[in-house]
Amino acid sequence: MTIYSFETAKAGVEEKNNEDSFRIRQINMEKTMVLMSDGASTGVFSKEWSDHITNNIDSSWLKSVDDLEYGLNTLRESFKPNITRQTALRKFLMEGSYATLLALLIEEDTGWFSSKLDLTLYSIGDVCVFVFSEDGSLEFSFPYTRYEDFNNVPDLIRTSEKLQKKTPYVIKPSSFKTSAKSLIVVASDAISEYLFQAKDEGKLLSSIEDIVACENNENFKKLMDIYRQEMNMKNDDVTVCVLTKEPELYFRKGVNHGLPGA
């Protein structure tokens, strides 16, 4: 599978302070797990929390909502950020850290005449997945399906059990079967919101192509700055991952940028 991935911090923020976290793990020859978590910038230790989530989720947790919820509870217990200052300790005790999550399991179902991809998805929050069919049309998106969905405050996974009980999250599950030739995009909230806007303007796939054409994070940062300034995209950390077995079906040229955090 060819994988393109790009990430950049919000404008005015150093790249090391990008609070998105993204991991891909090859479970076996047929199975790939994609995890994207977006640490909330108003919280404390947001980057550490989103990294803790993506580094430690086990693919066996993606069997059911209950399994994932149980697993996330263990992550809450094992999260021990390095706290060296009283202000940080007080904020952590009062508010904790919070982040969203999109977990995607891609299983290749190889048949005699054609192969399929079985997608298993779980969402807490507003990181989105888009699936395009061979003809370039959008055949599936999750958990949101339209631009207006971003008006809602996203659910968040919190490190504070007390606050989580006060504002519980809902794990949204989904599954989708698609052609092995499909194009899959996983994108954090601000760029997802932008992509839904592009969809309404008939520019969705060309926007994905523009992203893939960036080839590196430096160019991607420039493109995101243009989107922010000219297209009204929200100033937020941005992460995008594009996966396909057939890049030439969708793009002028295909470049494999490797597996971040693999």
Binding site: K10, S37, T42, V153, P154, K234
Partner: peptide, 8 residues
């Protein structure tokens, strides 16, 4: 508005 509010 300190950066973004309660967004990821």
């Amino acid at each position: 508005d300190i950066g973004t509010r309660l967004r990821g």
